[in-house]
Write a protein that binds this DNA or RNA. Structure first.
Lengths: 240, 240
DNA sequence: TGTTGTCTGTACGGTAGCTGACAGAGCAAT
DNA sequence: ATTGCTCTGTCAGCTACCGTACAGACAACA
């Protein structure tokens, strides 16, 4: 609105920065490629760098005592990995793992934290993102308590699609089961159902979303709720 | 550590402020009493004031399309109600409702936001609280996906107890069911089990925690995880 | 071309929790 | 004492999902 923003980056947060802010940040950013399965932070481990995914997709996973794992956050080109380190200790309680491989911009935590503490545009942007992220997590909590695995699977696929900008997702049922905190057999059944309905196509670790529209109708409301909140806080019409 | 903090307030955040910061905030604070069931913010409604509970207890509840409700956050003397308004729009997506009546310190959002944006001690404190809150919500998401209602009930009672500093909790099963996102009949069964084990005593809207220690053992790990995170970030040994 | 590992479909008994409903028990007001 | 309200216990049928397991299908590699 008031300043020209920078359209270059595929990452929404970087793209939302003003040209001057972006230029001042640029020297501190390195483009890296994140391979599938790479663990960016271990549970209880240090956060030394933050990441701005381009078309990669990163999951925040809480690992329970029993070894069960549940995804509690999903970060793609819409956000930054490592925000928690800006608010207190540079320690991650979740396992943070690369789900879909692609590039990301990487920066030292210290640089980002300095910039953040300086206030102004950058802080405002990251606070807005934090809030949107918080909504995502809260909605996930409510969703996990009340919605069926089929609905949650549909929602989850939509969230992935939106963040990597692709209908094609390289994902095994085993992996999805870990994210949803359920059994692989359950995912298998749910995925079959979605395929039978003609919403997705499934084949050995590769999912294609065939009918986006119908998938949205099938999914629970949580997809829309979170999407709307992201748009309200970070979209083109968000007031800074 | 470095500055003398102010021991007066029963609210941990206020108590953690330095004497000078507390004194400068004090004129803006009004003590109010929060009656059970009062709705502080409606879903989608404005956030005009924030609250620092004393021995009151406030729930953040996400209301689904079906009308089902699930608690996604719990704020007592350990925190502030309304943090989301510091990060973007002064709008609440959750219903925020008083669960256990008692006092709270109330302040205008504008005052708190100004102070927050000024950086320094107050911002640092609220950011730490935000992070602890985020952990609570994330752990709830994982917990809802994997743990039984009995475990979750035990955890939830412990969380309440800790925040209101009392073994006596005025809570109906109906209300608890709404918080856990389950049926009242299910809560009835779970509560009976806990009572039979001698962990709690139940009587027409009044619960007493009889055996705290055993209740902790019975509850899922999530109670400890969240408690530890709060202590690490906001406890007496937290580095600012 | 065969072998090996990965990914998926499915099956079966078991259980937790849902849906909906009814009855009894404590408390308050009249 | 009676009425009315709130809170709790319980029940019966049902569904979703668990826990575990096995076998088939595909892909990669030798």
């Amino acid at each position: 609105m008031e300043v020209s923003t920078n359209p270059q980056s595929q990452n929404s947060l970087l793209a939302a920065l003003s040209n001057s802010a972006y230029r001042s940040l640029l020297p501190s950013l390195t483009e890296v490629s994140l391979p599938h399965g790479e663990i960016l932070y271990d549970p209880g481990g240090p956060i030394d760098h933050v990441y701005f995914p381009l078309n990669s997709l990163v999951s925040l996973v809480t690992i329970m005592q029993t070894g069960a794992s549940v995804e509690v956050g999903l970060v793609g080109s819409d956000g930054m990995v490592g925000i928690a380190a800006l608010m207190g200790e540079p320690i991650s309680l979740d396992q943070v793992i690369v789900q879909i491989a692609d590039g990301a911009m990487k920066a030292k935590l210290s640089v980002i934290k300095d910039l953040f503490l300086r206030g102004g545009e950058f802080q405002d942007l990251l606070l807005r993102y934090t809030r949107a992220h918080l909504r995502q997590v809260a909605q996930t909590a409510a969703c996990n308590a009340t919605h069926s695995v089929e609905e949650r699977l549909a929602r989850w696929l939509l969230m992935c699609r939106e963040r990597v900008h692709s209908e094609q997702l390289a994902l095994t049922q085993e992996f999805i089961a870990d994210m949803l905190g359920t059994r692989r057999a359950t995912v298998s059944a749910a995925a079959s159902a979605l395929q039978t309905e003609g919403l997705i196509q499934y084949h050995r670790g590769h999912i294609r979303i065939v009918d986006q529209k119908s998938l949205e109708e099938f999914a629970c409301e949580c997809y829309e709720v979170v999407r709307t909140e992201f748009e309200r806080l970070l979209g083109p019409n968000a007031r800074s």
